[in-house]
Design a protein around this nucleic acid. Structure first.
Length: 517
DNA sequence: CGCATGTTGAAACA
DNA sequence: TGTTTCAACATGCG
């Protein structure tokens, strides 16, 4: 910022990483710059209510408003450009005479293609580009290199790689209390848009009722609140969580939407966890601990970077090729919560209304859509989750769908979640399903997960006649799940003969071994 | 090879 | 509330 040096303008481009803390791209942008342009690009054609639910857009806009406020308190502001970054960002960099462009690295295929084009255009303008890793604890490519150039495929082998890599980098320093000014940008322009500005009218928000507010400020408050309960942090055991608890969601931290948008740095989360673990001799360990949850995120990011065509079945060498059915009626019933199984329909209703549901609830509906009941492709389910989830994250979403459909990572396809038995373990009275499906409010607990078994007079008295007020089950779980296990077995056998990657090893094994008696 | 293990199954039994 | 059985896959270790 010395006045004798040539004026130097930099641009920090926010995409994910919507925060000021632990933001190495921002620090690099202000280093040696006397003008700073903090930019976010909104491409209104990209935000469509058919593709991205209103809850997530609302969360994003809240995050942008919070970022703008934090920048303003440091004598700066957020400049929101409208249009494709390729057009608007490149032309602004030229207009502002920017010499340095900084943005957080993003490994999603869409982002890599976009950023590749921007880098080319920037370099053509003589703009230097810095793109540090801060969305994950580690640089996925570094971990992959440490594992011999391949992404680890089991959590255990992944943890060994992490142990070899040592602790992740500490969070970057906080930015100074005063940032370089923005130059001649009109104060009344380039403002954070409203929902209706980006095409989300009231008619798109009717069902929307998200449980958390977007933004770094809310993220840090939430982190602090959960970290303060050290006994809870130390005893966190994910698989033992209860998927039928609702607001205020005591079973998990609900920090995932903040990690998705980068309102919260995973490295800060890690550092705070370490502090608690250091004070608590007894604490749970990965993979079930809170730290374990961060490692799952890293594990899946590595897989998404190291495995080709990670968002698809075809051409994905780690994904079993399975003969999924196509059935739009089933798919639509599942998405809309009209399968006739209250547990499934309630979870899908929570997804549409709130953009969030417990991890185990996600398991149940994912299993139901794929190998458990409907036998539809995990890709079609991932698309629906990607639309509605506040924390929809390309790498993690695709990984979990492959997991639950027993297409990759997990292969015990005979372990099927029962749409009646599973929720009963947690919520005998059906409070959760009654909250999301008010039509079942007066159904006796005995029948709440399988209302079609209630006698006609009970259904009538409850105001929930199956086939009239609430759908009849679209499949018979008791029979179809057994059929599907056999279909999975056949599909696995076909994969063995089609792609004998482990068969090669068995060929080696056979060499020199005595013939069978 | 044999065997244990894998973040989160269900049903039948004690 | 905890243990066994059901029917049974992939991986990694000894």
């Amino acid at each position: 910022m010395s006045s004798s040096a040539a004026p130097s303008a930099a641009c920090v481009w926010f995409r994910k990483g919507l925060r000021l803390h632990d933001n190495p791209a921002l620090l690099e942008a202000i280093n040696g710059s006397d003008t700073l342009y903090p930019v976010f690009c909104v491409d209104p054609t990209f935000y469509s209510p058919d593709v991205i639910g209103g809850n997530r857009i609302a969360f994003l806009l809240e995050s942008l408003r919070d970022l703008d406020a934090s920048l303003k308190s440091r004598n700066s502001r957020l400049i929101v450009l409208r249009g494709s970054p390729n057009d608007v960002l490149v032309s602004k960099m030229e207009e502002w005479n920017v010499s340095k462009l900084c943005f957080e690295s993003d490994t999603e295929p869409y982002a890599e293609a976009r950023d590749g084009r921007i880098k080319e255009a920037a370099e053509a303008l003589g703009v230097r580009v810095f793109s540090p890793v801060s969305h994950t604890l580690y640089d996925p490519n570094v971990l992959i290199a440490k594992n011999g150039g391949k992404a680890p495929l089991t959590m255990q082998s992944f943890q060994k790689v992490v142990d070899k890599a040592g602790p992740p980098p500490a969070p970057a320093a906080d930015p100074p209390s005063s940032l370089p000014p923005c130059g001649a940008v009109p104060s009344g322009e380039y403002l954070v848009p409203s929902l209706s500005d980006v095409g989300y009218g009231e008619e798109h928000m009717k069902e929307s009722n998200k449980p958390v507010e977007g933004g770094e400020t809310a993220a840090l408050a939430r982190l602090a609140k959960y970290m303060a309960d050290e006994a809870w942090v130390a005893s966190f055991d994910k698989p033992k969580g209860n998927p039928t608890t609702f607001t205020p969601y005591p079973a998990t931290t609900l920090l995932s939407p903040y990690l998705k948008f980068g309102c919260l740095s995973p490295r800060l989360f890690y550092a705070k966890l370490r502090e608690v673990y250091n004070r608590r001799a007894n604490h749970t360990k990965p993979p079930v601990s809170l730290y374990g949850q961060l490692l799952w995120r890293e594990f899946f990011y590595c897989a998404s970077v190291g495995i080709p065509n990670f968002g698809k079945m075809e051409g994905n060498p780690n994904c079993k090729q399975i003969d999924w059915d196509t059935n739009d009626e089933f798919l639509q019933a599942w998405e809309a919560g009209r399968t006739g199984y209250p547990w499934i329909d309630a979870v899908m209703t929570q997804l549409r209304q709130e953009g969030w549901m417990h991890h185990l609830a996600r398991h149940a509906v994912a299993c139901f859509l794929t190998r458990g009941d409907l036998y539809l492709s995990w890709e079609s389910g991932a698309k629906v989750f990607d639309k509605y989830l506040l924390d929809a994250d390309w790498a993690i979403n695709n990984a979990n769908w492959q997991w639950l459909s027993a297409s990759a990572f997990f292969s015990q396809y005979f372990r099927v979640y029962g749409p009646v038995s599973f929720p009963k373990k947690y919520d005998k009275d059906g409070a959760y399903v009654k909250k999301y499906l008010p039509v079942l409010a007066n159904m006796p607990a005995k029948y709440v997960y399988e209302p079609w078994t209630a006698p006609a007079d009970v259904q009538k008295k409850a105001g929930c006649v199956v086939g009239v007020d609430y759908p009849a089950p679209i499949v018979d779980h008791a029979t179809i799940h057994k059929t599907n296990i056999q279909r999975m077995k056949a599909a696995y056998d076909r994969n063995k003969t089609m792609n004998p990657s482990s068969g090669a090893a068995s060929g080696v094994k056979r060499k020199g071994v005595e013939p069978a008696r």
